[in-house]
Amino acid sequence: MPLGRVIEEPVPLAAGRVSLRVVRPRDAEPLRQLLVNNRGWLQRWEATHPSGRSVVPGSTSMRPTIRLYRKQLKAGSGVPFVVLFDNTVVGQLSISELSGGALQSSQIGYWISEHVAGQGIAPTAVALAMDYVFTVLGLHRVEICIRPENTASLRVVEKLGMRSEGRRNAYIHIDGDWRDHECFVALREEGPMLARLERGGGSRV
């Protein structure tokens, strides 16, 4: 296992009207409907397969994907959350690329529905997840990789005061081509992240 141990299913994490909980089978249809409703909002940022054989998000049931996510939790390789606003599912957040040993690192990826954008949901959700990574999983480092055109996500890492470590060229296949990404990092000793966000963060990008 990447961490050398099983990850216990975390209790829900909450701050105000925003919360995270591990994805469940009952989330399949709400998530599928959000993906359908947000095609225009999300398509530019969605991962695709270089072969062109990608499945359009929302076009099939989410149940097999959710089963895979939950297997990753049991295997210690990832922690899959849904993002809730006022107890309603409005997006997803995943902690992935978990590494133990000498690296002690992870990555976070996320999306929220357009209809709730601009209300501080994404920065709060990311801060909750990062504090979980640092305090519960005990890891040292979190990375978030963002396309340079994604101004909304760049604003999230700016609010959290994350540090830029530069561009990764042709890093991930997104929306039909290999896309550059900017890498932003926070370390455990720089937290807690939710408190930093509430203080106003501070731009370090």
Results as ranks from 00 to 15, higher is better:
residue 19 S to R: 11
residue 191 G to T: 12
residue 164 S to W: 05
residue 188 R to Y: 06
residue 109 G to W: 06
residue 61 S to E: 10
residue 128 L to Y: 04
residue 154 L to P: 04
residue 184 F to Q: 07
residue 126 V to Q: 03
residue 21 R to L: 11
residue 73 L to R: 01
residue 43 Q to G: 03
residue 111 W to K: 03
residue 49 H to W: 14
residue 198 E to R: 12
residue 53 R to H: 13
residue 151 T to R: 15
residue 139 L to Q: 04
residue 194 L to I: 13
residue 102 A to K: 04
residue 48 T to R: 03
residue 142 V to E: 02
residue 74 K to Q: 13
residue 102 A to M: 13
residue 171 Y to G: 03
residue 62 M to A: 08
residue 174 I to E: 10
residue 177 D to L: 08
residue 76 G to I: 01
residue 2 P to I: 09
residue 194 L to A: 09
residue 110 Y to C: 11
residue 87 N to P: 01
residue 119 Q to E: 15
residue 47 A to K: 07
residue 59 S to R: 07
residue 94 S to P: 00
residue 121 I to M: 05
residue 10 P to Q: 08
residue 38 N to C: 02
residue 66 I to D: 02
residue 28 A to G: 15
residue 186 A to Q: 11
residue 204 R to C: 04
residue 81 F to A: 01
residue 45 W to G: 05
residue 68 L to S: 15
residue 14 A to L: 06
residue 186 A to I: 15
residue 149 E to C: 05
residue 149 E to H: 10
residue 149 E to R: 10
residue 6 V to S: 05
residue 189 E to H: 15
residue 1 M to C: 02
residue 184 F to K: 03
residue 182 E to Q: 15
residue 197 L to W: 09
residue 176 G to Y: 05
residue 141 R to G: 08
residue 73 L to D: 12
residue 4 G to L: 12
residue 1 M to L: 10
residue 89 V to E: 02
residue 28 A to R: 02
residue 183 C to S: 14
residue 25 P to W: 11
residue 169 N to S: 14
residue 17 R to N: 11
residue 137 L to S: 01
residue 166 G to I: 05
residue 148 P to V: 06
residue 180 D to F: 06
residue 103 L to D: 08
residue 46 E to P: 00
residue 176 G to D: 06
residue 20 L to C: 09
residue 54 S to N: 07
residue 197 L to A: 09
residue 48 T to W: 09
residue 49 H to A: 08
residue 100 G to N: 09
residue 98 L to Y: 02
residue 58 G to K: 02
residue 100 G to H: 06
residue 24 R to S: 15
residue 120 G to V: 09
residue 159 K to M: 10
residue 144 I to D: 08
residue 139 L to T: 01
residue 135 T to K: 15
residue 110 Y to T: 12
residue 201 G to D: 06
residue 184 F to P: 04
residue 72 Q to N: 15
residue 155 R to Q: 14
residue 86 D to S: 13
residue 168 R to W: 14
residue 151 T to P: 02
